[in-house]
Write a protein that binds this DNA or RNA. Sequence first.
DNA 1: TGTCACCGTCGAAACGCTTCGCTGCTAGCT
DNA 2: AGCTAGCAGCGAAGCGTTTCGACGGTGACA
Lengths: 343, 343
Amino acid sequence: MVTIADVARHAGVSSSTVSYVLSGKRAISEETRNRVQISVRELGYHPNAGARALAARRSHIVALMVPLRTDVYVPVMMEIAISVTMAARQHGYDVLLITNDEGPDGVKRIAASGLADGVILMDVEMDDERIPVLQAQRTEAALIGLPQDTSGLSCVDHDFAAAGALCADHLADLGHREIAFIGYGSGVYHRHAGYAERTLTGFRERAEQRGLRFLHRSCEGTYESTAGTLARILADRPDTTGFVVQNEGAVGPLLTLLRTSGRTVPEDVSVIALCQDQLAEQFAPRLTAVTGSAQELGRVAVEQIMRRLTAAAAGDRPVDDRVLLTPVLTIRDSTGPAPRQQS
Amino acid sequence: MVTIADVARHAGVSSSTVSYVLSGKRAISEETRNRVQISVRELGYHPNAGARALAARRSHIVALMVPLRTDVYVPVMMEIAISVTMAARQHGYDVLLITNDEGPDGVKRIAASGLADGVILMDVEMDDERIPVLQAQRTEAALIGLPQDTSGLSCVDHDFAAAGALCADHLADLGHREIAFIGYGSGVYHRHAGYAERTLTGFRERAEQRGLRFLHRSCEGTYESTAGTLARILADRPDTTGFVVQNEGAVGPLLTLLRTSGRTVPEDVSVIALCQDQLAEQFAPRLTAVTGSAQELGRVAVEQIMRRLTAAAAGDRPVDDRVLLTPVLTIRDSTGPAPRQQS
DNA sequence: TGTCACCGTCGAAACGCTTCGCTGCTAGCT
DNA sequence: AGCTAGCAGCGAAGCGTTTCGACGGTGACA
């Protein structure tokens, strides 16, 4: 193993000088700096992470706590995890993966042991029990998702309300008047998952403004469940011509079922999805969809936590920071003008 | 911050005693041990990770290198990442997430800095350039996937050849004679991804033994691509009655296309998928599928690396270890007896 | 020409933990 | 009785960094 002392000897300087070259925290002459950098490269020196963390009281690690629940579309989680990792690397940080089943104790463990300098929490609930622990430990954190009370916290999320509104607007613009909103399984609403509620609220408010009649139905995302949901919708509101779908699993079945029931998309009914573009592209017809970038979510969370970390180092009080990412509507082949009224 | 010295003072012992209580590496009297444990709990002591790593030359971290490529079904990657994390925790280890874009240098960095005690590599290629780096750094590793040369390495993977064979057997048992194998996009075969080739080989050999005629076609997994692939298959071999699908994205489109073309599953044609059970359950009809447990993959990889770590600590030479997980066939509603010959 | 400030470098003191070797004990043998 | 062995606990020496204070040297300024 090659240590800083080896580099120092090789370059003919003291080890503190090597350290200063590497950190840039003191002025070092051009010449010395070059000599040191060459030695570093030649010896293949990488500072020992443990020693560094101990001396600097900084581990250069952020923890990312991922949910085990799978009602959130899994590829999105992965995309966030990866974008967090890559963004963190850009700041010289690594990412520690921890699972939600460790709960608040996990946060405590990581923070108290100094394993990570900060924590990014995914799938934050309205009243998340990990937040008080975080604050008690004086650990920097960034939340992906919005809790009830965001004071003193950094949060980032999609603007689900805007996404819901966008759906309502698009369908209203096309002349649809009778809309069905196919949402997540009822469990998601029962635990008051913020994203589900905010989407629905955003949709509802805009729908009312635009004079749409609408129906919200939860759906587990399996074929059978979708079939049942669709049947009920068509029984209650046979004139429905627009569908908004927020459950990734229900999209495929819905399209199949509509076709089987003799309805053509988009001539007879329009379907707009709240899902990733990649998924929307996979169906036939390609789906009009409202999306937000999962990558961006991860990147912003990392920026937030880095800002808090540097603020904390400077002794500043970090300000609240609440970012909502604007969703984008991409019009594809699954939405079209409402058919002429026949009833 | 509470240190080991605080605990020692609180319990009225020396800090080395506290350390021995915690590590169990020396005998400590029942009474002292209790006193120390109580102090630990009361003070909420968590050993400082950096100091521990420095002194013990063990970080208690394993790195997990995930691929950025998304031609592998993403939820499976996530499932592996999570099972690795949970299994590692059971051994007192945490997991550091690193992305494949760091490449061999990333492995070098992690190993040389002592950030992680071992590395788990996902999506290992036949001739992976990270492997020599690993060996040069004398870092313990476990591979998920099989490289060309496995000597001196620990690897685990699904037995894709057996999975392919299982598909051939099942269809042969049902009396099908003309089979089409719909695989991954051509890029996957061009880079000689082990899993794709092994599945195909396993399928081919068994198919030949059982006297099946078959066709292999690659497919990108989009709707259009699947449509094109299916059209070509039916043009070349109109009597095809069995489909094996290894591309998650192609499953939905295939079912839709078969229906549109007037073929009923499973009366007219049988479809067997190589995909997760969860996915297989989502379609109508529910798919007969051959699966391996992604969770198990992660768990085994962690066991392997832990074994290597303890062996290395004891100064033993770790033996090669090559585990192939047996796939399971679950018969559902998409396969049935071959229709009577009509031609 | 003396004083001051700054620059570039060095030495040494932490940082919090593990672990080796030592010291009194008590107990079990010869 | 004398010796060894093992138990329980302590003290101190690292582990490899970072960072603070100090120290010559140099140039600017009075």
